[in-house]
Nucleic acid binder design. Structure first.
Lengths: 141, 141
DNA sequence: CTCCATCGTTTACATGCGTAATCGACTACG
DNA sequence: CGTAGTCGATTACGCATGTAAACGATGGAG
């Protein structure tokens, strides 16, 4: 990508302007989880949390962090020579959109069928049922 | 693949031996939905159902069908010069694994938090709630 | 019998993702 | 001050996916 690089004020990246939150991939999601738990963190600190379990190298984590920054899912704050990363999208929002995606794709947007499915496939434990019952009671109030 | 085509009973493809059901992608899923609704169908018939809404060409559908056959998600049955395609994995199974995937990734495998989330984000309609209540009552019996 | 419409199969190509090595800048140790 | 370690950025590369055109066989129309 030789040639200039200035001219336009900014824009540049293919990360669109500001429409949807830009999908977060599976591997990226693992990184997000770490930062949702505690932040801001440096790349090395994030690695400490995920490299072992996922069998990743620091390099991989760095790549994922960069991509997440590009996707505007993470914010960076300089700290001496390195960066501190912190989530820019709330976990709530992410979880919400992912859940909705699934419900839309698989259950025509209705949550009840999802629940029915979970129930039928024994994916619900006693505790789950009790909890849900409690929530229901609350909703009805 | 020129050369023979017989010899081995089947296998061939890199689709592993017989472990997990092999992930179905988003576009592929759209094709599956058509066949889950009615099958067996020819490629052209599938196209009639999805090409318009998704803006696809018949060629695209053909590719997706092939990939699904490779993934063992579809079975083919010769019908004169063409093939009839039908699902090899039940919708139930697909929906189940996808749901479980989400619940695992986002809610630590517990269904109750998912439900709580849906409830909080107003993703539950009156009807949903009523339905779920009914299901709960049934479960408790 | 010949030619065309169709099939399924092959090949194509851009983008995204998983995973990482390499590179240029900078800092801290000696 | 030079050198080794570390940082983010750049580059890499193979596989999956979305989307489709090109190709070769074949069956039906004339």
């Amino acid at each position: 990508m030789p040639a200039d690089s200035s001219s336009a004020p900014l824009a540049a990246a293919p990360a669109a302007s500001s429409d949807q939150p830009e999908r977060i991939s599976d591997a990226e999601h693992a990184v997000m989880e770490v930062l949702w738990q505690r932040s801001p963190l440096t790349a090395a600190e994030v690695c400490e949390q995920v490299c072992e379990p996922r069998g990743w190298s620091l390099a991989t984590v760095k790549t994922l962090l960069s991509r997440l920054v590009t996707k505007q899912a993470l914010a960076t704050e300089p700290d001496g020579k390195r960066f501190l990363y912190s989530p820019r999208v709330a976990r709530e929002a992410y979880v919400g959109s992912e859940s909705r995606r699934l419900v839309d794709r698989l259950f025509g947007g209705r949550a009840a069928p999802l629940f029915a499915h979970l129930a039928e496939s024994d994916a619900l434990t006693e505790d789950d049922i009790a909890e849900i019952e409690a929530l229901l009671k609350e909703l009805k109030s």
